[in-house]
């Protein structure tokens, strides 16, 4: 369940009420960032938005790590094929 999409904080609208304006591909909405109050939210941060609430800050480093892993996992197969081809060629 739970439609959640990444949005970028562009402005803190109301510090006391924890309201921030986020941007999703040019679409803007004021959301509540109360659930992220302890971590603090600032313009430029990316947050996961669900039903008008920031649920979690999105960690760019972790995102990059995940993408690197995806590349590596895909590469495993390519490497194996290369290895297989090389060894096959050597064996023949």
């Amino acid at each position: 369940m739970c439609l959640g999409i990444p949005g970028q904080v562009v402005e803190i609208v109301d510090e006391a009420e924890h309201l921030a304006r986020v941007d999703v591909s040019g679409v803007r909405r004021v959301i509540s960032v109360k659930l992220l109050a302890e971590q603090g939210v600032a313009p430029g941060d990316w947050v996961l938005v669900h039903v008008g609430f920031g649920m979690a800050k999105i960690d760019e480093q972790e995102a990059q790590l995940t993408l690197d892993q995806v590349q590596r996992m895909g590469q495993d197969y390519v490497d194996e094929i290369e290895l297989f081809k090389t060894t096959a060629a050597e064996a023949s």
Partner: peptide, 12 residues
């Protein structure tokens, strides 16, 4: 991991 922390959102 870019969104989910092991302890979740404690405030929530």
């Amino acid at each position: 991991a870019r969104v989910v922390r092991p302890e979740g959102n404690v405030a929530a």
